[in-house]
Amino acid sequence: MSAPRPVGEAPAIAARDLSVGYRGVPLVAGIYLVVPSHSSLALVGTNGSGKSTLLRTLVGLLPAVAGSLVVLGARPGGAPRRLAYGAQFHASGFVLPLRAIEVVRMARYPERGLLGRLRSEDHDLVEWAMETMGVRDLARSPLRSLSGGQQQRVYLAQALARQADLVVLDEPTAGLDAGGRELYLQAFAAELARGASIVTATHDIAEAAEYDQVLLLARRVVALGPGADVLTADRLLETFGILVRDRHEEHRGRFVVAERARGAPQVVDVGRDEQP
């Protein structure tokens, strides 16, 4: 493996009064958030709580609806060579005639551009990442012949092979078996040790507790802070309770949330991190 790339000391993510949503309509408003370099953040909330929307805004796929957001010292998406993003499991790979190793090789494209040949260090990284996720034996297999969990491991290997300063993953452990989960947690720890920052959305409360910060989302910021402070019964009920009601009385629930979004920005605890 090549030497770890040095990571700057500026925060990986700094958001101030950020609103995220689609087509200018805020889904979650008033987000104050600092993710220092070399630290991790877990987003916890039900489906539709705004986790993926926030992640997609962080990586520049969605424009911020309001507020300021600086990612890796630039506008979101402005530093593609330092960013890795693993979306939720997607099915588009099925049609493509691709071998697993070619998916992981894509991780090196931002570094090499349109025509730059992949170097031996790139091939080493690809091999190492596949080894790390336990899919080295599957390198030559067609992607569409792999099971969902195997494909998810390949996608995670792609994110690792990027050697990014900020790794953003949407439900990385969904669909993984116990072995895959363990490999992912080890790789996650190694990425942090290398100096990367990690932001993931997860449904696994126990896993979230391992992160430096936890952000509870329910179409608003319920709480932000160290896992021990945030993952309390009351707050988890608040996070998941609102959306239970939302599920039963969909229209009324939406109305309640929309009203909150228009109201004063939520005052959130930024934990031990200072504002930029």
């Binding site: 997609r56 990586v59 997607h90 894509m106």
Partner: peptide
Amino acid sequence: CARPFLLLSFDPEQADVAG
């Protein structure tokens, strides 16, 4: 354009994030 075309076929969002 082989690389961006491959990324685009794999997942357009991956192409965007990869620059």
